[in-house]
Write a protein that binds this DNA or RNA. Sequence first.
DNA 1: GTCGGCTCTAAGGTCCATCTCAGATTCGGT
DNA 2: ACCGAATCTGAGATGGACCTTAGAGCCGAC
Lengths: 226, 226
Amino acid sequence: MSEPTRILVVDDDPKIRTVVRRGLAYEGYRVVEAASGEEGLEKAREHLPDLVVLDVMMPGIDGLEVTRRLRSSGDEIAILMLTARDEVKDRVAGLETGADDYLVKPFSFEELLARIHALLRRKTAPSGELLRFADLELDVDAREARRGGRTIELTTTEFNLLLLFMRHPRKVLTRDVIMEHVWAYDFEGESNVLEVYVRYLRSKLEGDGEPRLIHTVRGAGYVLKE
Amino acid sequence: MSEPTRILVVDDDPKIRTVVRRGLAYEGYRVVEAASGEEGLEKAREHLPDLVVLDVMMPGIDGLEVTRRLRSSGDEIAILMLTARDEVKDRVAGLETGADDYLVKPFSFEELLARIHALLRRKTAPSGELLRFADLELDVDAREARRGGRTIELTTTEFNLLLLFMRHPRKVLTRDVIMEHVWAYDFEGESNVLEVYVRYLRSKLEGDGEPRLIHTVRGAGYVLKE
DNA sequence: GTCGGCTCTAAGGTCCATCTCAGATTCGGT
DNA sequence: ACCGAATCTGAGATGGACCTTAGAGCCGAC
């Protein structure tokens, strides 16, 4: 994926925060830090990270409580919990309150990275999602769209293309990026498949003379916007 | 971005310059060389590179001083510092004066490439972030500008030109530099494309009789300033 | 085997971003 | 104040990017 993934690191130990921040930043992630549970919740609200690395044991609001609150506010953030060695009950409690995975301290950075990758892969995979943009809805499970009351059937390719747009609204997607994501091949010889499918989508989505949502950006690509 | 990434290599050792230049050019980067700190500063002003590979130890103005001056002139260039083995204090000093990362000599080209990629990902992909100058905003993702509440649609060339200005505010950009960055060709014959596009931008950005932002500097070029 | 739906190719048409050019205007130097 | 050069401005030509449509190939369902 092209956009930077945001990761929030919540731990009261500055040494851990620094190591993790540096490492993840080096890997190209956008990193936000918090030194306490309170600050973590605040930063989460502010930055909408894709994943939180969360220490269980912290003074004040601890990791379990942070997890509980994040979950209760309906967030689908991936949560990776850090637990002290042998604190088995913490792990169990962590998973029960809604953490997605845990890692035992001390850990190597590579281990952490592996967990993070696995989690992100799982989480950003669509399931049960209902994506929404303007008056357009995309039901990921049913693989169909809705607009203006009517239900729009999509073929696989149309769905994949629209999914990409819905995940990156208001963002210009270059032809290359789109081709890579939806068709997954390097087209040496040129092809106009993309244009054809954009047209298919448009004609389905604008069936009733509704305003255009997928706009052409000459010399660049396409954008989903009002 | 569409224009090629520019990298400036500053090292007094010609062997290193050659190896690095060849390798990076092969990777598709536009490479500029400098053999001393003085020349490095000059080339940086002249070519506006996205990243500088900078040797610490050089006669005359050394890498630390170059870093300091680049930073003090408000540039957000990515700086990768090359240090001799075990010169720990150089590394620390380097990071403190504003370098973004360092690499210990001797290094393999692959190592260098990996660092460069990581740095560029961090630095020049301000995805989701808005560039801002005075009351003007440039949304890099959406490829559109905003001023005085209204949204301004930009063509590709207009966008590239404005992006260049926004990345180097308050800095006089000569016609040559602009032509090189936005049009990427050596114009032997005269052309006034640049003037035409400056006009296009102005008319879009000053739509409501707002104060001018792109000013002409006679005999030199243009500046973005209030 | 036949049918229907999905995917892609191909060819022609349309449109507008880009650039050129010519004349107007402004600026700096004297 | 004047002159030449630099820059601005408007209008127009053109080429390529994008759109549109039709249909061929493919695969699975029955």
